[in-house]
């Protein structure tokens, strides 16, 4: 083959690669603040998206301290999906640093997945300067599986906006996901039906949405405020309540201090169930479905143990 021929072949190859390049690049790069949202974006996007969660599995996303590489991840991202409310405030400063207007609040690639969620425990004392609403509501809304309908709606809307070519794909996947989810919710509801209305206690207040879906009666929270240990007076009230109302088990999530929970369980003769509040908190909770599978299993196990 002549020199020219080889060159031509090379060019052809290069051209072919360039043609392929859009395919290779086609995966829409999405950054989420938590693993739960990552799981939901994957559920909607499938192989057309590549998702990274800033807060890694098992970390406390509420107090996450961003790392330098996170800025790179954000720079490459086309969409950022966040929990919103007061949960991932640390993201705002990072977004300002990257300075990409599309990712800023109101930009095409900014998804606040709390939009249109029915919020619980809205204590908000109105807007403060900067328009941020403090006490905007309990942020653990992904723990009501039915809320996935709204969350994935917000996600799918943004995916379709930035990648209209795959709109059908995203919408179909979302519907498939929701259909499967609906069946599972019914299953979980039957599994948890014996626990409905039974009093239980939690360490951190991350369960109101979960409680609402499955009719669980959380009579109290051990920590009075996030990160504050209970006072002796509060503990003695809790112990009395546990004895009076026959609270038979306490839930905590792996990051919560074991000491206080074990102390109360010891004093009142209750069981402790360790639940995952986010995907990846427990090794079994690998994605959004197994998150609930794990929790439902842990709750029913603790309940059957607690029965005399």
């Amino acid at each position: 083959m002549s020199q020219n021929g080889r060159l031509a072949v090379r060019f052809l190859c290069l051209g072919f690669l360039l043609l392929l390049a859009p395919w290779a690049q086609a995966a829409l790069s999405v950054v989420t603040t938590t693993t739960d949202l990552k799981s939901l974006v994957e559920a909607v996007g499938g192989n057309r998206v590549s998702v990274v969660s800033l807060a890694p599995a098992g970390s406390d996303a509420e107090d996450y301290a961003p790392r330098p590489q996170d800025l790179d991840r954000l720079r490459d991202a086309r969409i950022i999906v966040r929990v919103g409310l007061d949960y991932d405030l640390w993201l705002d400063r990072m977004l300002r640093q990257t300075g990409n207007p599309a990712l800023m609040r109101g930009g095409a690639g900014h998804v606040d997945s709390s939009y249109a969620i029915v919020l619980l425990e809205v204590k908000g004392a109105g807007l403060s300067d900067g328009g941020h609403s403090h006490g905007a509501g309990n942020p653990h809304y992904w723990l009501d599986p039915a809320n996935a309908e709204i969350i994935t709606g917000n996600i799918a809307e943004a995916l379709v906006r930035l990648d209209p070519a795959n709109a059908k794909h995203y919408e179909q996947r979302r519907i498939d996901f929701l259909t499967r989810l609906e069946q599972r919710i019914r299953l979980w509801q039957t599994q948890l039906a014996p626990l409905a209305g039974k009093p239980l206690l939690t360490y951190h207040n991350n369960w109101p949405y979960f409680a609402r879906r499955f009719r669980l009666n959380f009579v109290g929270t051990i920590e009075p405020r996030s990160g504050v240990a209970p006072s002796p007076a509060a503990l003695s009230v809790l112990i009395r309540r546990m004895r009076d109302e026959q609270v038979s088990f306490i839930v905590r999530h792996p990051q919560d201090p074991a000491r206080d929970v074990d102390f109360l369980a010891r004093k009142a003769g209750a069981r402790v169930a360790i639940l995952a509040a986010s995907v990846g908190d427990l090794p079994q909770a690998k994605d959004y479905f197994s998150l609930f599978d794990t929790n439902v299993a842990a709750l029913t196990a603790a309940y059957s143990e607690s029965k005399p």
Binding site: Y115, A116, G124, G126, L127, S133, G153, E157, V160, R174
Partner: peptide, 18 residues
């Protein structure tokens, strides 16, 4: 009245419309 952003809606179409 609270100047909140409480809005109803569930499907993508509803969200878009909102």
């Amino acid at each position: 009245h609270a100047h909140n952003q409480i809005v109803p809606g569930k499907t993508i179409e509803e969200l878009k419309k909102l």
